[in-house]
Simulated assay, not measured.
Amino acid sequence: MTMSLKSLFYCLPLLVVHFSLSASTAAAGKVSAIIVFGDSTVDAGNNNFIPTVAKANFPPYGRDFDGGVATGRFSNGRLVTDFLSEAFGLPPSVPAYLDPSCTIEQLSTGVSFASAGTGLDDLTAKIPSVIPLSQQLEYFVEYKERLKLAKGESVANKIIAEALYIFSIGTNDFIENYLALPLRPAQYTPPEYVAYLIALADAAVRAVYDLGARKMEFTGLAPFGCLPSARTLNHDEPGECNEEYNKLARRFNAELQEALRKLNGELAGAQVVYAETYSLASAIIASPSDYGFENAVQGCCGTGLIETSVLCGVDEPLTCQDADKYMFFDSVHPSERTYRIVADNLLNNALQVFL
């Protein structure tokens, strides 16, 4: 299958729905579109169309996506945002903005501007040469104009006002940038860097609000010290979660919640909700069998200890047969089944106000 045919395939609504989320029928019609900003947790394939090594448009990625297509999603199947789109009565997959085969009609019910490897800090995006959040916001401005041309200003404005905006970003600022390279640590102490990132998150929410957004969700960080790769690279306690990393995630989350509380008080007509994922991920890691998993320590791909992106190969003999048994698909990214659990949890908690 050529790249263009692949792109066309996954821009179309999926023909087969393998399961439904608990709120799917109740949510229909409450949200006009799912509009997404962020990193690899929500990149639907934008990195396929830029010169970067941070790609997932090859097997075994996508092997459980409808048709077995490697769309560029860093998972074996769909992402949280895809499941949320379906639950709100919209198409069961959110297309990538940069995919040239996706029409504005297809993008009018959902669009992802996200880019794997990016962060709130523009410096983070420069490391793997991906799309910074600032550029994602510029694409949103462009998207709005395209929507007005296609739908007329009144309809376009209604779509923008009633859409649900999802931010999923921040982990790479720590694992790719602050904890890996010397520049930011020379400028900021850990608390100062967290404060710097929170100011950028605040600015991003205000930017989309000024462009018409009213329903917004900002996802907190998961315990990234428990990623398989973080366990592997934990020199003090090999194989164990890096608790110093997890402390940074908790600090970021606490300050993000406070920032969002203030934004709700300042942005007239806006609802900005915090999506808590740290506790759920920690619960799965602590007792994977309670959630139907056999492994929450290794990824499905390869040895499961360090492989991600190009290091995950279809011919890797150690890659697991059933990704549903694994919390992680590679050493950094969750499996489709994990994303489904997270999506259902969000619908039953943070996103209840939009149902």
Rank of each mutant, 00 (worst) to 15 (best):
V155E: 10
F49V: 06
K262M: 06
M327L: 15
V42K: 02
A87W: 13
A163Q: 08
L84I: 15
L248H: 06
P13E: 00
L351R: 00
A54Q: 05
N177C: 07
S24M: 10
D290I: 04
T2F: 09
E105N: 12
V42T: 14
G68N: 13
G170H: 02
L355P: 00
V310A: 03
L260G: 04
F37E: 04
K158D: 07
L15I: 01
S331P: 06
V130I: 04
V111D: 01
A125P: 07
L21D: 07
A296R: 14
E237K: 05
Y165A: 14
A213H: 01
L211G: 01
A195D: 12
V69C: 10
V17Q: 05
T25Q: 04
T103S: 15
K55P: 00
D66N: 05
S309I: 00
Q135W: 05
V208H: 09
A116L: 02
N57P: 01
G119N: 07
L183K: 14
V342R: 11
Y196E: 08
I159Q: 01
N295S: 11
Y165C: 13
A70Q: 10
E145S: 12
D64S: 06
P223G: 03
A56R: 11
L197S: 08
G304M: 03
R231H: 02
A199M: 08
S335H: 10
V353C: 14
A180W: 09
Y196K: 15
K126M: 12
N172E: 06
S22C: 10
L14D: 03
P191F: 05
A270G: 08
A249R: 15
I104A: 12
G170C: 01
S168C: 04
S32A: 09
L14W: 04
E138T: 05
V208G: 12
D122K: 13
I285M: 11
A296T: 14
E217V: 14
S85Q: 12
R206E: 15
D64F: 04
A161T: 12
Y165R: 13
V332A: 03
D39E: 04
A203Y: 01
S134Q: 10
E243L: 13
A350N: 07
N246R: 11
K215E: 00
L346G: 01
P185R: 10
L183E: 13
L90I: 01
A222M: 08
D173R: 12
I198L: 09
L248Y: 05
L181H: 04
E240D: 10
Q187N: 06
F174L: 09
